[in-house]
Amino acid sequence: MKKLFFCLTFVLLTTSLFAQQGFKLGIHGALPMSSEANDAVSLVAGLDAGYMHALGEVVDVGVATGFINGFPEKFDNQVVGVDLPNVQFLPLAASFRIWLSNSFSFGADGGYALGINEGNDGGLYYRPIIGYLMGAQTEVNISYVGIEVDGSPWATVNLGILYTFPQKVGR
């Protein structure tokens, strides 16, 4: 019940931000890096959403969320076949970026990743990220996702693309 309340509160607080400047939407693909993630899934895909506010020309801060889905490994032999479940997370995080130039940034997201699939309680979420602007609204990024699930790390290396919706000037 606490997770549902936290999730709903986050969604309600961020929906008012969607119409403002700096709303970002993207996708990413990932490979598992930790033994826990590697044993459970073969590939990971996700959606990213967030809002960034510029504190000046160098630093941006905001909120980030998304959806992470780990596609399960398939184990089949002549005696037994095992179907593992998808591993799914809903990250809720604060976010910051530091711009080293007009097109290169680095930063991190940090917060909590809610476990969505059965038996997944989620855990502490962190995501260091490096981004490169390929145009006025398109960013390509590489990141590392770490989620501390029951004392063991869930870790992936990600390649993603983000689109920033243009800011509306005036009314």
Rank of each mutant, 00 (worst) to 15 (best):
H53P: 01
A108K: 05
D76T: 14
M52T: 04
N86R: 14
P32D: 00
G160S: 01
A93M: 09
N102G: 04
P85D: 13
D76K: 13
A37S: 11
I147F: 02
A40W: 00
D150Q: 09
S95T: 08
K2A: 09
V11F: 10
W154D: 00
L12T: 11
G29N: 10
F6A: 13
G170K: 13
Y112S: 08
H53S: 11
S95G: 06
E139K: 09
G151W: 01
F75S: 10
G135Y: 01
D109Y: 02
E118P: 03
G66Q: 01
F23K: 08
S95F: 04
K74F: 08
F5E: 07
D109W: 02
L13A: 12
D76M: 04
V58G: 05
V80G: 03
E118Y: 09
Y126I: 12
F75R: 13
A37D: 05
L25V: 15
F23M: 11
T14R: 00
L90S: 03
D109Q: 12
S42E: 13
N86D: 14
M1W: 04
R171V: 12
L25S: 10
V169Y: 08
G170I: 09
L4A: 07
S34W: 08
G123T: 06
P166S: 03
G46I: 08
I68G: 02
S105F: 01
L12E: 12
V80R: 10
F18H: 14
L92Q: 08
L124M: 13
A94L: 15
S101D: 07
W154L: 06
S34D: 02
M134L: 14
S101V: 03
G146F: 09
F18C: 15
W99E: 03
D60V: 10
D150W: 05
I161C: 10
L90D: 02
Y51I: 03
K3N: 09
W154G: 07
P128K: 06
G70N: 06
T138L: 11
G146N: 15
G107S: 01
E139V: 09
A40N: 09
